[in-house]
Simulated assay, not measured.
Amino acid sequence: MILKNAKIVDDSFRFADADVAVEEDKISEIAPGLAGGEEIDLSGCVLVPGFVDIHIHACVGADTCDADADGLAKMCAHLVTKGVTSFCPTTMTVSHKGILRALETVKSCMDHPPKGAAIAGVNMEGPYISIHKKGAQKGEFVKNSDFKEFQEFYDTCGGIIKLVDIAPECPGAEEFIPQASRLCTVSIAHTEADYACAKHAFELGITHATHLYNAMPGMKHREPGVIGAVLDDPRVRAELICDGFHIHPAVLRITFEALGKDRVVIVSDSMRAAGAPDGVSELGGQTVYVKDGQARLKDGTIAGSTTNLHQEIKNLVGWGVPFLTAIQAATLNPARAIHEDERIGSIKVGKYADMVALDSDLNIRMVVARGKIAVNNNA
C-alpha cells in the first residue's frame, strides 16, 4: 500500500512532500513519486503520525478498572476512530485486588490484541498519591508508596506498566522513586509538594508530571511549587488536558511556549462518559455528573474529561498553538514518555504504520493502524 500526494509530517516534525509505502504493519519507504501495488490518493491532506494517548481511563461506557476484555476491545475500536493508534489504559486508585485484575486483563488483551488502537502498556494513576489532592480518586484506597507492592504488580502483569504516579512528599517516596524509575516512568501527581520537594524528586528519578496544574498547588511568585519546578527542569515532561475546561486556553499557550516542543504531552484523561451523551456516569466507584461535556463529582470536583486527542489538537490550533507543535505533543512526545518511540510516534521507515490523514479543517479523512486502513472517510 502506498499513501500518495499528501503533505507528510516527517520524523523531524517538518512538512515534507513525499509518499509513504507500507508493507505488512511497518513503514517501508518514504520518498516522492512512489508507485506500485495499491495506491491511495490523499491529495489535499496532511499525513501525521497516529495519536498516542498515555493517560486514558475509559470511554464509550468502558473503563480500564472494569477488568473486562470486551470493554477494552470497545475502547480500542472507538479510539482508532479518533485517530488514536496507541494508548495506555489507565487505572484509578482502587483496591489492590482491583488494580491486579485490571492489569491482568490488559495483559491478556495485549497478548490477544483487539481490532483498533493498540495497547502500549498500563498507566497506574494511584494509589500512591496525597489524600489532600486526591481529586476524583477514591480516598479509602489512597496509600503511601510501597515498592514491594508495586514490584508485585509489575511482575504479575509481565512488566506492562509504563508509567506510575506518586506524591513525593508522602512517606516511602524516597525509596520508591529510584527503584520504580528503573522499571518504568515515574510521574509526580496528586501532590502537595513544594518546589524543593519536587526538585528533589526529579533528582531521584521522576521525569514526568501528570495533568500539570490539576491536583497540585498553583504557582505563585514566591512559591513556585510543582508547576514552577516542572517548568524549570528540562528533564521533565508534562501532561496537559487541552479541553479548555481543565486549563484555560491562555495558560495552555503560555505553557506550550515555556516547555517547548519536546516536553508537552497531550492527554485526554477521559472517563467512561467520553463518546457518550451528557448524563450520570461513574469513575473509580464514584458517581459522576456530566453536563455540557464537563464531568464532576457531586461536590463539584472535576472527574476526568470527556474529550479525545483529536479534539484537543483542533482546540489547540484554534487557540494559537502551532499545528506541528500540537501534533508532536500528541504523538512522539507521549511515545518517548513511555519509551516506545522506537516503534511508534512518528512517520519513519521501520516504525509501525500508524498514521492519520487530516484535511484542511483538521477533520479525519483516514486512519491507518498497524498497516491496515481502520477508518476511511476519504471517499
Rank of each mutant, 00 (worst) to 15 (best):
C184K: 00
C184F: 05
C184E: 03
T185F: 01
V186E: 10
V186Y: 05
V186Q: 07
A189Y: 07
H190L: 11
E192I: 12
E192S: 15
E192G: 13
E192K: 12
A193R: 01
A193W: 03
A193H: 02
A193N: 02
D194W: 14
D194F: 13
Y195E: 12
C197Y: 00
A198S: 15
A198V: 11
A198Y: 11
H200V: 00
H200Q: 15
A201R: 01
A201D: 04
E203R: 10
E203D: 15
L204K: 08
L204Q: 13
L204C: 08
G205C: 13
G205M: 13
I206C: 14
T207L: 13
H208G: 03
A209L: 06
A209P: 00
A209T: 02
Y213S: 06
N214F: 07
A215Y: 05
A215E: 08
M216S: 08
P217I: 10
G218Y: 10
M219G: 03
M219R: 05
M219T: 02
K220Q: 14
H221V: 10
H221Q: 15
E223C: 00
P224R: 03
P224L: 05
P224A: 05
G225Q: 09
V226R: 04
V226L: 11
V226A: 04
I227N: 01
G228M: 04
G228L: 03
G228W: 03
A229Q: 02
A229W: 02
